[in-house]
Design a protein around this nucleic acid. Sequence first.
DNA 1: AAAGATATCAACCGCAAGCAG
DNA 2: CCTGCTTGCGGTTGATATCTT
Length: 206
Amino acid sequence: MGRSPCCEKSHTNKGAWTKEEDKRLITHIRAHGEGGWRALPKAAGLLRCGKSCRLRWINYLRPDLKRGNFTDAEDDLIIKLHSLLGNKWSLIAARLPGRTDNEIKNYWNTHIRRKLLNKGVDPATHRPLSTADHRSLEIRTDKGDGIAALRPRSPDLNLELCISLPFEERMVEVSMDENKKKSKCAEGFLRLGSPGLFDNGNLAMM
DNA sequence: AAAGATATCAACCGCAAGCAG
DNA sequence: CCTGCTTGCGGTTGATATCTT
């Protein structure tokens, strides 16, 4: 028995959005506000699924979006936040006003990754790559569920940067994967307002 | 100029968290 | 609690643009 589809796919459009669809979506959201994505397409007269509407609005139609190239300061901030949060694009985007998680994720994968590699920095660990050992930075592990995962080989590559957080659960949730642990800690870090982090999202140290 | 390779990014998919009943 | 539904997230795909040969 498979999952039920998120919407009636046989009656929905897919692919690039037309200007008319954009207009309908913007008009509807201006009138009724964000949310209720599942019911929105029908209400707005769109042959799209709710997910698609939400994505289109959040990533491209929202009025507060900052389009255009990333600045060097944004580059640096993304790199710093990534070293802290890992691939938690939504958390990173939350610290970059006008940027979306999808935009940052794409930018990371197409530009920053290469930029770091060219500088001899491993984009996954943010540590220097050495020609002799960079292939050994990661090892494959099998967690017993048949799914292999890449994990840092060296203990000192552990990016758990949550030294002083009140997250007792991280000590006991041994089954939680590394990314989740990292982001949980980092979320707390951001929420609590670490001395190393200014309100504008800039990192004072690290 | 044409063909193939590579880069970019908008959009989709599946999963999991959160919430209401 | 349990269940089902909705929303949000991260990984991935695929169409298009740009570059190289």
